[in-house]
Design a protein around this nucleic acid. Sequence first.
DNA 1: CTTGCTTGTAATTTATCATATTACAGGTAG
DNA 2: CTACCTGTAATATGATAAATTACAAGCAAG
Lengths: 146, 146
Amino acid sequence: MQISTKFTIAVHIITCIDYFKDTLPVTSSFLAGSVGVNPVIIRGVMSKLKEAGIIAISQGKSGITLARPLTEITFYDVYKVTDCVNETGLFHMHENPNPDCPVGRNIQMAMEGKLQDIQAVMEQKMKEISIADVAVDIREKINQTG
Amino acid sequence: MQISTKFTIAVHIITCIDYFKDTLPVTSSFLAGSVGVNPVIIRGVMSKLKEAGIIAISQGKSGITLARPLTEITFYDVYKVTDCVNETGLFHMHENPNPDCPVGRNIQMAMEGKLQDIQAVMEQKMKEISIADVAVDIREKINQTG
DNA sequence: CTTGCTTGTAATTTATCATATTACAGGTAG
DNA sequence: CTACCTGTAATATGATAAATTACAAGCAAG
């Protein structure tokens, strides 16, 4: 299993909006071309980014803009928005342990908190990384290689 | 997406082997009954736990035993063994960013290290939790509720 | 206000992967 | 020797991700 590509697609989208904001009108078709996926996927992700107040969308010929600075958009924000992880958690627990077995009856309760702790450290780390960090790396690379 | 149930199944298996070691011969069918999945799934997980030197299996009527103490079996050991995460990492990056776009050309390189860092903190946390911690919680719960 | 381009979204298809299931070969303890 | 176990391949089923088609609805420029 892996966390859905929607997460990295969303990061790509936000980075593009920032990168091209003074040059081109950024649309879902344009983004689909850069990301390499179907425009409908882009629109679905965009729609959630809009709900979360990360980007602003206007229909017609306008284009998409950022609703707040890149430094204030963390990986965690994007990860939450894109529903990469089920509400039942990062880990999928086996669902039918035997209630007639003392271990089966208690395994879920015994593991639950521990799995949540693991997920929590991962999410904490995601809060410490922003899209601005990605944008910086990309501009740096472009300046080096053209 | 979620991390495969094989992980929690493996934890359940190890906990059961320890819990019943002085009472019953533990077999794949018995474990399948406690875990609530098909015996073939149990055998597949067992096979990997054996390769990793976590349990010892003998065919015939014997049963399965632990190869080392519960305190020396971490969540990370079990997670690695059960191939819960692809060799390409916890995150699935979109695979066809456009090389003709400056952002598309560099996005993978810009994200790679950051995604690895996130995965690393999660794995570090898993190294700090052992199956013994689960066994303690289960015995405690059994003593309270019968 | 009309026109052309855009987003929003439902419905369908395709591909991939996790799990269940059946079947049987091979090994070992009693 | 034999009964019971593991090892594993092959197949079926189901869930989910992503692609694709299609179309309704909205905005902006003129």
